[in-house]
Simulated assay, not measured.
Amino acid sequence: MSTHTSEHHHGTAILKEIAVDYCPEVCHHKPEADEIHITFDHRGGARWRSHHRFQYGTFAGRIKCPAGNTTGLNFNIYLSSLEGDKSQDEIDFEFLGKDKFSVQTNFYTVGCGNREQMHELGFNYSEDFHEYLIKWGPQTIEWLVDGKLIRKEERKPDEAWPEKPMFLYSSVWDASYIDEGRWTGKYEGCDAPYICSYRDVRVPVENIVTEEK
């Protein structure tokens, strides 16, 4: 791993165990190599997560998103108090398949989001591994790419804030139906199968709150 990102990993360890929420046949975890791979094809995609929730800390992963015509797909790494819960807290990195040169960040408090920002990356996210890191605290949230800060949010007085214990999640899915395809584009699938690869996924060594239910 490059030295310019190592300074941001204080208090973290490699995630060695994951749970797969659906389609385990297309999610391959290689703990001996610290790698995870999700394949998206006619079977759909998959979602993996940490076994534990955490409250605050640093979360990171080196990700190489799928190549080819990925219009319609969404790839991501994010924190959520519980996927599918309409009152969730959440902090996101999301890659939109129609644009390989940008990433979207967002965060939710008690199910309320609408804080999206788009960030130009300066590279094609499908050509190599790059590190995406979230630093979440009781007063600030920071999003970093390859050690460079791209967004920082500071808590304002009397403002709702993501503070529920959260799992680390990642998934690959067809988001064509969102906003009639305007968000990620319409899925065509002409270059399937698509593979999203993760290396050196890191989570806090402390701040573990809840065992998997």
Rank of each mutant, 00 (worst) to 15 (best):
M1D: 05
S2H: 11
T3G: 03
E7W: 06
H9N: 15
H9S: 08
H10A: 15
H10Y: 14
G11Q: 03
G11W: 10
T12G: 07
A13V: 04
L15W: 01
L15V: 10
E17V: 02
E17N: 08
E17I: 00
A19F: 01
A19W: 01
V20L: 02
D21Y: 12
C23S: 15
C23D: 15
P24L: 10
V26R: 02
C27E: 07
H28G: 09
H29K: 05
D41V: 05
H42W: 00
A46F: 05
W48Q: 01
S50V: 02
F54H: 05
Q55G: 05
Y56H: 13
G57N: 13
A67L: 10
A67E: 00
A67T: 14
N69V: 12
T70E: 06
G72S: 03
L73K: 09
N74V: 13
N76R: 12
Y78T: 01
S80F: 02
S80Y: 00
L82E: 15
L82M: 06
D85H: 14
K86V: 15
Q88I: 01
E90L: 04
I91M: 00
I91S: 02
I91N: 04
D92E: 06
D92S: 10
E94D: 08
G97M: 08
F101S: 15
S102D: 07
T105D: 12
T105Y: 10
N106W: 10
V110L: 15
G111K: 07
C112F: 14
G113A: 10
N114V: 14
E116P: 00
E116T: 12
Q117R: 14
Q117P: 04
M118A: 11
L121G: 05
G122D: 08
N124F: 09
Y125N: 15
Y125L: 11
S126T: 15
E131I: 04
L133N: 04
L133E: 14
I134P: 09
W136T: 08
G137K: 07
G137F: 12
W143Q: 00
L144E: 03
V145Y: 13
K148H: 08
K148Y: 03
I150G: 04
E153K: 10
E154S: 08
P157D: 04
P157I: 09
A160F: 07
W161C: 13
P162I: 06
K164Y: 00
F167H: 05
Y169L: 11
Y169V: 01
S170H: 11
S171H: 01
V172S: 09
V172Q: 13
A175C: 12
Y177P: 13
I178P: 09
E180H: 13
R182I: 01
W183I: 05
K186E: 13
K186V: 15
I195L: 00
I195E: 05
I195W: 03
C196R: 12
Y198V: 03
R199Q: 10
V201R: 09
V203P: 03
E206Q: 04
N207G: 12
N207S: 12
V209D: 11
V209Q: 02
